[in-house]
Design a protein around this nucleic acid. Sequence first.
DNA 1: GATGAATTGCGAACCGTTTGCATTTGCGAC
DNA 2: GTCGCAAATGCAAACGGTTCGCAATTCATC
Lengths: 147, 147
Amino acid sequence: MSESNEAAHSPADRADRVLRRLRAQGERITTCRRVIVELLASTDDHLTVEDIAVRVQAVHPEIHLSTVYRTLESLEDWGVVEHVHRGHAPPIHHLADAHPHLVCESCGRVSDIPVEALDDLTELLRDRFGFELHATHFALMGTCARH
Amino acid sequence: MSESNEAAHSPADRADRVLRRLRAQGERITTCRRVIVELLASTDDHLTVEDIAVRVQAVHPEIHLSTVYRTLESLEDWGVVEHVHRGHAPPIHHLADAHPHLVCESCGRVSDIPVEALDDLTELLRDRFGFELHATHFALMGTCARH
DNA sequence: GATGAATTGCGAACCGTTTGCATTTGCGAC
DNA sequence: GTCGCAAATGCAAACGGTTCGCAATTCATC
């Protein structure tokens, strides 16, 4: 999962690019923001707020859970982070790159799928119901092949 | 929306049928259960727990919110009621008749759509990702034509 | 390095939901 | 009809995840 076959953009690169962009926007780069951006850039996992807090506090125990919430909120406002709802399970967060998710209700596994997989449905809902689907903010729930 | 062109099954009929089935199953028909089934049978609206509690308590003020929760849980266990998740908004409940929902993130409007509308997507997810979509327990979020 | 505004740590509040427990209720047996 | 008992209820307290208010700290600029 985390072997980088895209050597061009290492996790550190991705984090740096995001942080530089934020600074250019005039936002302040605090410890919590830097650590969370680096954390999310370093993994393909989909993390809950608690997952994130635990990892952040492993290195910076002084960072409070409420700061993690506020930081994630800011990062979302700036388009850096997105979160995905999973029904009863707590939402998960990842670096922004809008794509839909499949979440297995049995094992909790999260799969990223290409946005084109929903093109037909998007069009159908638009044509038949005048409804513009937001496919990336909410996971598609179901059961995965392992069940 | 609520003109009944299915005069054959009035709301009262539907409620009665459900209640009779439950009694036949050996479940006890309490005030709260009866009132909630009648309420849900009488409307096409999609109600939150609080909506339901307010309406129930308008007639039976002694019925406690926690009883509403427990009643809805039982009714779901028995396949009478279903609930649908809507991301940040609280879940909504309706009499069981599995169909997908479109929920507008701007105005909150909930639309029922026929299950066939998702047939192609269901098949695609099954074939390409080995994923069995549960389309009715989670709403499709987006924006409706009015926005 | 001083300054001012943004951010943080902390605790308390919050909201929707669940739980434990003593009391009441539905309903089958008599 | 009423008795008995498990099941369901009312109530209050706990809960988990999230938000808020505020004083203390920190970042970035000068």
